[in-house]
Design a protein around this nucleic acid. Structure first.
Lengths: 336, 336
DNA sequence: GTACTTTTTGGAAGCGCTCCCATTCCTACG
DNA sequence: CGTAGGAATGGGAGCGCTTCCAAAAAGTAC
């Protein structure tokens, strides 16, 4: 059915090796190259990936593992955007993308990825401090890039933002607008993002000479935890709440309004992520923009660098964040 | 590095062919099978996918194409849940999953999928009446399952729900609770789901002897189109609005409340999808449940049947929907 | 114990490609 | 005009597996 490379060699009157060189960019005379390329176009020839992969040891396919609790995975747009960022970049890099979601245990996912044995490299979301999937991938010799960092690991390549700094800057902003009882609804404990944001929050509070006693409530990055977290913090007379992400802030906003309090007059509110809906809340939400798509794209590029350099030097990328001030903290401001 | 099948044959004292039979379920004596399986476990041997695929013509990898406008793709949970349903099922079926999102034109995506030449079959979201990606996939000889149906195509395999019937049942429900000026905010025109839901809406209205004049507003399956759509419909004194999906209903709800109207007393509201947030709106939303995850899983199973039967008989699956009545149409009811 | 089945096993031919190595073809220079 | 040296090309050996076919082994019936 589909023509193979020998057929193409015959048609263009050259050897199979030459056709291969034309396709893969070996040195071929201009005249020959043109002839073969013409035939390539003529026949619509597509090299067989399996054969290519078998002979060369590379497949041109990379893997993405997002082993996240199914109920959390696509609840907000975060993971979708991350995936899109990667996908866009992989298309540009002419790579195929395999995807593993959190269907079973992390050990099983690890086994699935490794036994597939197809991918040239893998990107894995690494949100937890402990993660056997990440450990296993790093231990395998597969080029691996983490989205999220591991504090004490000097050998892993990753892409992340500086959560501590970003959380510090939001909290400081709340201090600057004169708030003194600033509460924090945390993200899912055990994740690097949650813990680092707590650290940033504490650091800013400490620097301002403010107490955090009783002002921290555990959340889980989801709206319901914002609703209940805000109940607690409002009972404790907070005049500002920094939520670990935008979804949590959306939940907190519900509670604040349900109590008939004004934002930002009675309670200033801030989130983290700057997902699409943050700017469309009423009032628009002050938050930290951490280009999620860009993180995905950067992870993809980093993976390709890793696969190109065989030396295995880890590459660490910290992307910038931006404090986005909107009306949920500074009422008068209209500029988004 | 990794042991190959010859190494395993040597270690278990049988021929390579026998090892292959053990792995792929050929007929082997119990004694031999045990010996080989023991060695398999011992060495942690993983067959090389590329070699396997080259020799057998199958890869064990399937593709999923969700060629959707990047801004719409993961905005609500619909596509994420669809993806999860497929992914879960593919894991059970021991298949790998490649993913293509809508990065470029549909033609380019088609070309990427076909030139990758790796996948044994593909599931493609087919929401539009016209879609070159779907056409191209169906024209290739790759086993293909659509999520969404094509009205006039008797050769395609698909998984879908009966949008006409479901929309009819929601609309009829609004009629039954005594509403007479029932508006409809449509989905994205040109999609099968939008057009069929319109048909169902019209059918129910006609049967009830109600007019639809000026009561239909075009939307696009997103919240902002619900906001603006509701503006128009409220100006036209609607006492009920059926939105093409839950996200649109969420937008419409904003508008209704902004005008100080009560739901359902002044305006009854209904959506479609029954995504997680529908039950958590205030008031909880009456909608149509169309198990999205289940649709994904069913599409995966259907694809496998298609790949197993080489006869290519198209398989069409219509999954059931369920009218879920909540307080946005029947105020007193507390049962979700 | 023989003749004939049936089951189990091994040998070997590819699957379609890449890439090393040897060969041929040019070009330039003595 | 001859030849060294470089560029272009072809030959061919795999990559690791599946699968057809034939041979061997193990049953079965007489």
């Amino acid at each position: 059915m589909a023509p193979n490379i020998d057929e193409l060699a015959r048609l263009s009157g050259v050897s199979r090796a030459t056709v291969s060189r034309v396709i893969n960019g070996g040195s071929v005379s201009d005249k020959t190259r043109r002839r073969v390329e013409h035939m390539l176009a003529e026949t619509g020839y597509r090299p067989n990936l399996a054969a290519r992969s078998l002979a060369s040891g590379r497949s041109g396919v990379v893997g993405v593992a997002m082993h996240i609790d199914p109920h959390l995975l696509f609840r907000d747009a975060y993971f979708g955007q991350l995936l899109q960022g990667m996908s866009d970049e992989f298309v540009d890099l002419a790579a195929g993308m395999m995807l593993w979601l959190g269907n079973r245990t992390k050990e099983e996912t690890l086994d699935n990825i490794l036994s597939m044995g197809l991918v040239d490299g893998v990107i894995v979301t690494a949100h937890y401090l402990e993660d056997p999937l990440v450990d296993g991938l790093l231990a395998s010799h597969l080029p691996t890039v983490l989205v999220g960092h591991r504090r004490h690991d000097r050998t892993a390549s990753y892409v992340d933002v500086d959560h501590v700094h970003a959380a510090d800057s939001v909290t400081s902003h709340l201090v600057q607008i004169g708030r003194t009882r600033i509460g924090h609804i945390t993200g899912m404990r055990g994740t690097v993002a949650a813990e680092d944001r707590i650290t940033g929050y504490r650091r800013a509070m400490e620097r301002a000479g403010l107490s955090t006693d009783g002002l921290m409530v555990d959340g889980d990055f989801n709206a319901p935890s914002g609703v209940t977290g805000a109940e607690v913090l409002l009972d404790r007379r907070c005049d500002a709440i920094f939520c670990a992400n935008d979804a949590t802030a959306m939940g907190a906003l519900e509670t604040i309004r349900a109590r008939g309090l004004g934002v930002p007059d009675d309670v200033a509110l801030a989130g983290f992520d700057d997902l699409d809906f943050a700017a469309r809340l009423d009032p628009p939400l002050t938050t930290v923009r951490q280009g999620v798509r860009e993180q995905g794209a950067e992870a993809a590029r980093t993976l390709f660098q890793l696969m190109a350099d065989r030396d295995g030097t880890p590459r660490r990328v910290i992307l910038p964040t931006e404090l986005v001030i909107r009306q949920s903290t500074v009422g008068g401001v209209t500029r988004p």
